Amino acid sequence: MNSSIVIALPKIEDAKKIRAILIRYGFSVASVCSTGAGALASMSELDGGVLICGYHLPDMYYRDILEYLPSYFQLLLLASARVIGEAPSSVLSVEMPMKASDLVNTVDMVLSQLERRWKKDKKRPKPRSWKEQNYISNAKFLLMERNHLNEEDAYRYIQKCSMDSGTNMVETAQMVLMLLYDEV
């Protein structure tokens, strides 16, 4: 995943100052804007990352942006202690006035977490199609009927054959079906 940083603050000068700080520490800032709509448009073109956002932008509040935030983006709220106290617990925040080190460390932490989550999600196997699931179900049914296995044992048999042969479960189920139907 190519993590990006989008900065949305009501005063564009403040956003540019934060961009300069982040660039100085080696971060890549994809976009700087002063509206929520601009931030959402920028994020829609990116894979994921951090939206550094103020409490109130000219066109919407941070809570409005939160509703439309893409899945691989994390909102980092820059606000006063009072606003942060009222924010949902899921929203990361840095209290204003802030130290550059607090901002840099928080952005680094968020980007690292997003990268780990993206890698974990990428490793997760994709769901089987109806057709693939049907092969496995039919092979299970045949094994249950012919070999008097219960459903769990039939599934384990297909799973074990799959691991032993180094093929995926769908291919193994297809082989079981071919072998059992050829016997008829």
Rank of each mutant, 00 (worst) to 15 (best):
I12G: 06
S34I: 04
Y55P: 00
I84R: 01
L77M: 08
Q74N: 12
V50S: 05
C33T: 15
S42P: 00
S71N: 12
L9P: 01
G36E: 02
L76T: 00
Y62D: 01
D14C: 09
E45P: 02
L75A: 08
E86R: 13
A30T: 07
I18N: 07
P70F: 04
G49D: 08
I21L: 10
Y62W: 15
L40R: 05
E13D: 14
L22K: 03
I7M: 06
L76N: 04
I18D: 01
L78F: 10
Q74W: 11
Y62E: 05
L76G: 06
L57M: 06
G26D: 11
V50P: 04
F27W: 07
S31Q: 11
A41Q: 13
I65Y: 03
L66P: 11
G36Y: 08
A79M: 08
Y72Q: 13
A41Y: 05
S42C: 11
I7T: 01
V50F: 08
L75K: 01
S28G: 11
R63I: 13
A41P: 00
L69A: 03
A39P: 09
A79C: 06
E67H: 09
R24W: 10
A87S: 15
S34D: 14
L76D: 00
R63T: 15
R82P: 07
P88M: 04
E86S: 15
L51N: 03
A87L: 12
I84A: 10
C53Y: 03
L57S: 06
I7Y: 04
Y55T: 13
Y68V: 05
S31R: 11
L22Q: 04
G36T: 03
P88R: 01
L75F: 05
L69W: 05
G49M: 07
I7P: 00
L76S: 07
K11A: 14
A15V: 07
A15R: 09
L77Y: 04
S28N: 14
I23W: 08
V32I: 12
G49P: 08
I23K: 14
Q74H: 11
L76A: 11
I23S: 08
